[in-house]
Design a protein around this nucleic acid. Structure first.
Lengths: 525, 525
DNA sequence: ATGTCGGCCCTAAGCCGACAA
DNA sequence: TTGTCGGCTTAGGGCCGACAT
């Protein structure tokens, strides 16, 4: 609420300020170019450009293709030969999963406009994009074209029911991240790949071993499976996607919501084999509860954490800081220094989005650095169509130290039911060791100007709710909080091998947890 | 090998014998009808009829619909009004997952024939059926129409590479089941819902907790997901679907294949908290190895096992018998008395397939009993189109004691690469308590005549390889056996929290394990 | 600058009986 | 009895510029 207000009040002012900042950046870049002409070619080839467009009805209709904003096409796509009557080329873009998507890019119509025609509808269909979703294109430094999608919140039929406290909790959860950033400690981004399905029932978790246990799992019929297979799913892995509907909906008398199942913060499970009251190692409790989801972080990041590069030491206090964990897959360790985290794990080189990406904006990704990796150009590297990835590489997971794609996202408004999700792949090259911020002062000023969450700066005003608070709040609990139909009391927290006792309404649309990731990534952007 | 030989040699003889048996059945039914006319209506409504047809190129082509064998249509579909010029009706059939499929059933053409037109292609597309797959229709006693599919073996491009011992192992695995049947003990059917995907790499199982472990998981890109999400999958959950291809294929120097990860038989993990050498409860080892798959059996079966009905006691020795476990989900406890298991857990009422279903045959499901549930008719209950399920019910998992669908299947030949899979839903009503076999003699004779595996009787000749042997062979190990690229030695069996050390060729098509289920279900049919 | 629409083309889905096996 | 085919209709995918905002 306070978020929203601040955002709207400050948006105009912020916009002006951002433009000034951008201007300053460009001047700085020009200066840098002048200073070191030799590095220009190398630098410009590493300059990423991207745009994000919210899809219109026409974009997603089968009737036509995708209307590319002019500026976006010029920024991110290889230049067309405008001397031709109908300039066109084939674009090849890779998504997060390494899948290549081919589009026919044509410049036609009266007045002329950029369009993606052939191949676009296939993309829309495969990704199941609908009007309101967003597509992101990123032109990598070497000419690789990446694309991602960001789905709009799915408000289904029926009234949107949300727990009254969810908004508040979001604020505190976000505040924890803000705090983590302010202290530049480490946190984890946790997520699951997007899946959606229908809760069709409740089931024993393991009738063989623990028959009749009051701890239940949900039966979920996943969408888009080859067959509509039923799956057992831990309620803690679930995020409501919108309304709670159906005649059988019910909510148990509310109990104090608390962290259950997954360890909520590092303080809960320091790092030993503490034995619980049940004589079993605590660290296996979440496994015992049958909710194991494989951790998923790259060797690259792990190596980074264990032996940080000297030049990065100052910015990376290590793993002793506050940690945010969700119940989902641990995808990546992001260092709370948002900018360095972007530098290190998103692009692997110094760069910074100069503002929060919003729908329908073209963004030049600029760099703060002055070293060889500094942004020194805005030009598309010379390249003839069709555009293929210059450095084709296998699935990102196979070459973690070379390319580390990262899910990221942003949202330009904070609504109770908003669950903006995104996916995007970034090229990730071997890390340059250039210090990113000369001192803490630079970081702070940077934050003031560019580090935003839901559209307003993180280090100013009422935003920084969590600064100074203990940021061990659980991102997992966040997802619990939105599950008002899944109460659980403290006593049930540590009762292996039982399962969390849950009650769930039937016919509730569910989604895997993503908002945690999105909110963390908002900061990174 | 010996299976195949016996099957072919005996097929003609068997066919004649079966026809005689069927004739006898019909006579007996007529007799029963004459004896008790009052029960006719109730009985006929509980008479299930089904047919199975292997799909032709025309059936699966987009060009047309599905050509229904005349006998099948008359047996399983509501009668059409043949006085009309083009008799037609709407059929509604429910699959295993409770999904309803609607078809336009029309009788037209010159000469006249039964066809499924509108709705058929949608079914083919959704199920991804191809020529060679089979579709099964079952008309339930109350007029419910169920349908299922059975996929043909998928021989992919390239040479089919199979471990030399797989054939042998299948034989011994099957023999164990035969033995279980002969002793009428209990075994489990284990399976995973059908999924297929591409192995794209190898990954650490948990880089955070066990970084750099030599125990790996596979990265699998699943087909047909909304996005081509990557997933970690234990190699033991995987069944090769055909060829091993790709330039990076390699096989480690072979080591003795053995049971790893999942407990292979009950004797491995009796039922306690034995502590392994690593000071952790043995029963959690499979969890610790990160390969947890939730067991999946209904409370109904569990209750049955713990307190068998008195009249069934003789046929159900209980849970102390040999157990077959796979590494997948435990779906259902099937009692080794195949006929009773069908009676109890498949249809929930006395009935028996009089022979193994083979492609393109219409089968009347007959009963051995003489009680009220005995089969006493073959007529379609009066019903007007469109045909809907008379007793619509929620997902089977929600009402285990009312409707218990069961995956089942059969295969009419035994080939090295054959991986016939099927899915089918059966109505399951509250269990009648009529004793099925009066004595052991009846069971034996029944087996001799009707109990078949891959087309030949289970209790005769060389088939009963496993009788007298210790049937603790692991169905899980069966699946391992087909993974010749996943060697593992004994020492690695119990090394939590490490993962099974595996090497896997990239770009190997995989499927979840099903053949175990299919083979067990062959017996049930 | 770009969202939406009508026009138009053309492919493919899909229903039909002919015909042959 | 039923698998396959050619004929035929139709729906809709998809490319285009017109037009309006």
């Amino acid at each position: 609420m306070v978020f929203l207000k601040t955002f709207f009040l400050g948006s105009q002012v912020e916009k002006r300020k951002e433009m000034q900042i951008e201007k300053k950046w460009r001047e700085g870049i020009a200066q840098a170019e002048a200073e070191d002409e030799d590095l220009e070619s190398a630098a410009k080839s590493m300059t990423p450009h991207m745009f994000c467009k919210t899809l219109t009805a026409s974009d997603t209709s089968t009737h036509g293709g995708f209307s590319v904003p002019r500026r976006a096409a010029e920024d991110c796509f290889p230049p067309l030969d405008y001397k031709q009557q109908r300039p066109s080329q084939e674009l090849v873009a890779k998504d997060l999963h390494g899948t290549e998507w081919k589009f026919r890019h044509i410049y036609r119509g009266q007045p002329r406009r950029h369009l993606l025609t052939t191949g676009w509808s296939a993309f829309v269909n495969k990704k199941k994009l609908v009007s309101g979703d967003a597509v992101l294109f990123l032109r990598g430094g070497d000419g690789e074209l990446r694309l991602g999608i960001r789905r709009a919140a799915q408000i289904k039929t029926g009234a949107t029911i949300l727990p009254p406290s969810s908004q508040l909790f979001k604020a505190s959860s976000v505040a924890a991240v803000v705090n983590a950033i302010s202290t530049r400690s480490t946190f984890d981004i946790c997520y699951n790949p997007r899946c959606s399905g229908l809760i069709v029932g409740v089931s024993d978790v393991d009738p063989t071993r623990w028959p009749g246990s009051k701890w239940k799992c949900l039966l979920v019929r996943w969408d888009d499976m080859e067959v509509n297979r039923l799956n057992r799913v831990s309620p803690w892995e679930i995020e409501l996607s919108g309304s709670v509907s159906g005649p059988n909906s019910f909510v148990l008398p509310g109990t104090k919501r608390s962290r259950v199942g997954f360890p909520a913060s590092k303080s809960d499970l320091p790092n030993g084999n503490e034995v619980s009251d049940f004589g079993e190692p605590l660290r296996f409790q979440k496994v015992l509860q049958g909710q194991e989801v494989f951790a998923y972080s790259t060797p690259y990041v792990g190596a980074e954490a264990s032996r940080p590069h000297p030049s990065d030491m100052r910015c990376y206090p290590g793993l002793s800081g506050p940690r945010i964990r969700s119940g989902g897959n641990i995808i990546r360790h992001l260092h709370a220094d948002a900018h360095n985290s972007v530098e290190r794990t998103v692009l692997g080189e110094p760069f910074q989005f100069h503002k929060v990406l919003q729908g329908q904006e073209t963004v030049s990704i600029l760099s703060y650095g002055r070293g060889p990796e500094a942004n020194q150009g805005n030009r598309w590297p010379t390249m003839n169509p069709p555009v293929h990835n210059v450095n084709p590489h296998p699935s990102p997971s196979l070459v973690p130290s070379q390319f580390t794609p990262l899910h990221y996202g942003n949202q330009n408004k904070l609504e109770a039911s908003n669950q903006v999700q995104s996916q995007m792949a970034f090229p990730h090259r071997p890390v340059g060791t250039q210090p990113f911020f000369r001192d803490n002062q630079n970081f702070v000023s940077m934050c003031k100007n560019s580090c935003r969450l839901f559209g307003f700066p993180l280090t100013e005003g009422k935003v920084a709710l969590g600064i100074g608070e203990n940021p061990t709040v659980s991102a997992s609990a966040y997802s619990h909080e939105s599950n008002n139909s899944l109460p659980c009391n403290e006593e049930q927290m540590y009762q292996p091998p039982l399962m969390p006792k849950v009650m769930v309404s039937s016919c509730t649309k569910v989604r895997d947890m993503h908002s945690v990731r999105d909110r963390l990534l908002d900061i990174a952007l």
